[in-house]
Every structure is written in C-alpha cells, then in structure tokens.
Design a protein around this nucleic acid. Sequence first.
RNA 1: GCGCGCGUAGCUCAACUGGAUAGAGCAUCGGUCUUCGAAACCGAAGGUUGGGGGUUCGAUUCCCUUCGCGCGCGCCA
Length: 636
Amino acid sequence: MVVAPRTTRAAFDTIADPMSASPNAILRPPHDPATVLEDRFRAAIRAVAGIDADPQIRVSANAKFGDFQVNAAMSLAKERGANPRALAEEILALVELGGIAMKCEVAGPGFINVTLDAEYISAQLADLSRSANFGIPAATDRHAVVVDLCGVNVAKQMHVGHLRATIIGDSLARVFERLGRKVWRENHLGDWGLPIAMTLAKLIRERADFARLTLDDLNRAYRGAQRETDTSDLAAAHANHCGLHRIAELEIQYEPARAAMEDAKKTLVRLQSGDAEIVRLWERLIEVTMEQVYDAARTLNVKVGPDNNRGESFFRDRLGGVIETFRASGHAKSDRGAMVVPFTDRERPLLIQKSDGGFLYATTDLAAVRFRTFELDGSLVVYVVDARQRDHFKDVFDAARLVGWNRTADGTESTLVHLGFGAVLGPDKKPLKTRSGENFTLKDLLDEACERGTAEVTRRAADPASPTHGLAESELRAIGTAVGIAAVKYADLSGDLTKDYVFDLDRMIAFEGDTGPYLQYAHARIASILAKSGESTECIADTTLRLELPAERALALHLLRYAQMTLDVGRTLETNRVGAYLSQLATLFNGFYQACPVLKADDAATRLSRLRLCAMTRAVLADGLSLYGIIAPDRM
RNA sequence: GCGCGCGUAGCUCAACUGGAUAGAGCAUCGGUCUUCGAAACCGAAGGUUGGGGGUUCGAUUCCCUUCGCGCGCGCCA
C-alpha cells in the first residue's frame, strides 16, 4: 500500500516520494488509540476484502457517535460495487477489539462507530505519562530540515511582515526539533549588492560616525540613497520617446543622481574586491542592523541569533559556479545578452545573469538551494517567505531540479517547499499602518503588545484575591510581556498561514476566548492547583487513573492525541493545528475543572487521579505552547 | 493580457484533507463566584459555505463556469 502523497495547501511542491521525502507520514504514535484501531481494522479489512486499505480512522464528529469512526467501508464498497452497510457489518464481525473498545456498531450509510473502553484509555494514558517525549516517535530521517526564516535586509527597519517570517519559521523549527530532526534555522540576510553599496557610499560621503551609527541613521541613508539615485523619470522619458529637448533637460537635472550612482558602483567594486576599509564599514552596517533583530528575537522568544546568519554575501563566491553549472548542463541559454533558464511548461524563463554580467537574487537563491540540500544535508527545505514570491520560488525550485540540486549528499531527494504566508492587514483591510499613516515597525508592535499585556496583568494584580497580588513590578512586567507576546504569536500562528490576516491588537489583547492568554490562563490555573495540593510529583505520577465522569474521559482521550497532532504539523506545516489542539485541550480542561472537584474530591483516590490528569494537562499545555515559542507562567 | 491565491454567521477564523445536523471565539441576549483562579463555565440567537452547473451513497473540500477582492509577471531584491 502506497501512502497517498500529501501536500500542504501552502506548498506547490508536491512530495514525489512520500516514503523517503516525508518519513514522518509513516510514523505513528503508540499511545494514540487511532494507531491500534488502524491496525485492527486494517487486518479485518484484509480478511474481508483481501486488500490492504487505509481504514480511515477519524475522531468522531459528534460524541453520540462514540470516540472514533471508521469510514473505509463506504469507499471500499463503492470500488467493489458492494453494499456499504453489509461490508461494514462484515468488517465489524471480524475485527478484534477485545480490551480496547466497549462498543462498536455500524451506523448511517456505513460508518463504524467505536467507543473505547475507559480502562484502555486510562492504561494508555498511564503509559504515555511514563514515556519520553510525550509519546512522539523519533524521526527516522537522519537528514536535516532547513528552515529559511526572518529574512531581514541590512539597513532596513523590521516591519510586520518580518514578524510572520520569523515566528512561523521558528515555530516550524521547534516542531521539527520536537520530532527529533536536526534543524537549521537560516536567516537569509539581504546583506550584499548595489542597494547596500549605495547606502554605504552615502554614509561615507556624509562622513557619518560609524562607531555611533543607529538603525535610524541607516534607514535614513538607505532611503536617501534610493531617492538620490532615482532616474526612473529619465528612463521613462526615453521609453516614451520624449523630445530631445525634454530628455536633455532631465539629463541635466539628473546629473547628481548619476554621480551618486557612480559613487555607489565604485563602492560596490571595492566591497566586492575585499577592500579592508570598506569591508570593515560594511560589517558595521550589518552589526547595527542585526541588533534590532536579536532584540526582537529575544522579546519574541524566538531562537534566532548571530549563528543563524547566512545571507547573500555568504553565497557571493558561488554565483559564477551556478551559471557554469546551468550552462554546462545545457539548461541555460543566452537571451538578449542575459542568461536565462527556460521551462517547457511556461512562457516565463528564470533570469540568472544580467546582460552586464551581474547576478540576480535568483542566482543567489539557486546557490542557497544547493548549499542547503547538499552541504547542510537537508531532505526538507522550507522557505518561510511571503506569498508574493510564489512564482519566483516555483522557478527557482524547478530550475534546481533540472540540475539535480534537490538532492542531499547521499542522493536522497529533497523536498523544497515555499511556505508563502499572507500579508498582515490593518482593520481597514489594507497593509498595516499606524494611525498617522506611517509604516508599522515591528518594534512599535511589540512594544505595544508588551505594554498592554503588562497593564492588564498589573490591573488584575491590584485585586487582593489575585494570586499575583503583591508581586514585584519586575515580575509583573515579565508576566505581562509573556502575555502580550503570547497574544500576538497565537493570533498569527493559529490561523491559516497562507491567508492574509487582519491584525487587530484590541481583539487579541482582550485576552478572552480563543487567544494565547486563554491557554496561559488554563496553564496557570492548573499550576495553582498542583501547588496547592501539596503532593509530590512522584506521588501524583504513581497514582491510578480513574476515568469515571465524561469530562475526565474526554480530557484523557485528547491528551492521547498530542503526539499525532505534532506529527501532523511536521507533515503539513500547518502550525494552526497546534493552536486548535491546545485550544480544545484548554476547553476540555475547563469543562473538567467545572465538573470535577480536584482538591475537594470525595475520596483520596479520586483526588490523586484528578491531580494526575491536571499534571499531564499542564505538561502538554506547556509543551504545546513551547512549539509556538510561548512561555507559560505559573501565575498570571 | 497571462498566471497564482482567496471568498464560510454582523466581525475574526475552523472544519482532522471527500463523511453524519458546517463548528469556535468576539459582539448581542440570558444564566453561573460564602466552594480548587470568573482571563472561566452553561444556554439562546445567528448560514442558500459569493452565484450557477457537474462528478457520487455523500462536496466547504474535487472538476467546469461566472462574479468580486488581492497578488505576481526577464536584466531590483
């Protein structure tokens, strides 16, 4: 049986060979009831129909249909021209579910509804709580996962788009780390080329004090340099065949622009040739730019630092080789003086070298693909870059395949994925701006989130009954920051990454409903119960789980599914599954909390059993939040 | 012009990748704090899944068509 190729909605690069390219698809968590149900029903289907088919085990949509449903009978019956209900009955008669299910019946057009034995759930959960890594099976693929994230440009301020590229990439990296993969976070900096040289040249002309440069200075210089060298009106005049007089007029007007451009090009040549003085200043530019990135990463609890920097400049010596490879293999041709890679299925070719011999970003990206698959040994390379670059990455990936660069060092085929996320919009559905119409910088946004989180935490701490009452201001600030950042990150990661999303701080900072703080609150409440219980963690871990009330049972069942959810995120790259899972876990816990007294339970055994459920829920909540890089405080 | 993406409750989003009566959260209305933290819980109301056709036991999901919005289209990155 070949596992059907699964693709991410976000990715246009299909996984050609799921067995090698996506080994997680065949990893199954041992504690999840779906795993054993799949085995048992697979065997029953083989006995009935003589084929190996996916039983299609799903969590039941409705509690009245039991815990799980088996959907395979209907599609199998269609293929074989059989009666679906009769086929379901045959499967049901042969399936071996002793000790697993207490009830199993055919319903509707051919569903098989399974209700598990509470004893079985409790045994699985007890085993899960003793196993390492939340029962997540270790990855079998020893190749690395490469995540291209953040993607800042030197001399430019980070904006809200970088927020997504950074936290989505970091979250995926965390998921793959949790799955046991070697992960490379790659920050592909825009740190090379003419725009940087222009900025550098302008700063030098202005005799800027490089020792005291600020990001604002760089930003101003960058924009100033862009403006100074802008001759687009002149180019347009030529293109529109304006009169000679008009063109001559414009040429005089643009003389300073030409001079500035000349200066920038000379600076670029010096930089490229390794002129020690220029290189030193260039490094300073990067240093100043990256300080904001590390600041933002620290605030966001994102694992991005100097070790992750591998930008355009890193690949500068490999660009000639890219052209050579494509030329030698016959996949590139000269066109209007430039070098292009044509494709058979579309008009648009990929331009890899300009007619003046210069390279383009496609050239750098091709060099990076080669580096990531062959040298970093990535069997999965994920580009977390905004959706507008879809066509570009399609071209780059297809070109890389033409020359066999989608292979690891041992020849394993790599999966190249562009995870194109949508734009961040303001409440007016236009790209996010501040009230005064300025671009919303990442710093503005994070400052506001932290400030509002702190204000809210401080306000609640004023209540003498609050567990946070009397905490030091620095502690409240730390909690408030965690809460504010959780709101921002959760709102982003818990939706469909490919869609544009409306950024509304008011809504997410309301801290009510399906938000990051809602999950943190559930966590803090559990931590509070555990602390008050006075029981040691060992004692709690040893106790017998008794699942008597529906709320206990539902909570336990959901805890058993954490591993599968994590595997699913690794397979689909859909980070929103984490949020959906945790949100449901918190809701189930709140229901349990409402229905089942823990510290005031009727008897000691029930009390301990419920404490054990609390402890496990707390651990899974904290671990799940860590997949988003969200901190779960014990008090808030 | 060509290509890509997206249209689901008033708003913001789900729907386990073709399954049963399309679910949450805000907002609205009505209930729960002398009992483990009310950032919570329970209930009500809210829908022609943009429109139309098709595929089939079954479609928000796949195909065709149409409308609307957004984005991208060789010498910037």
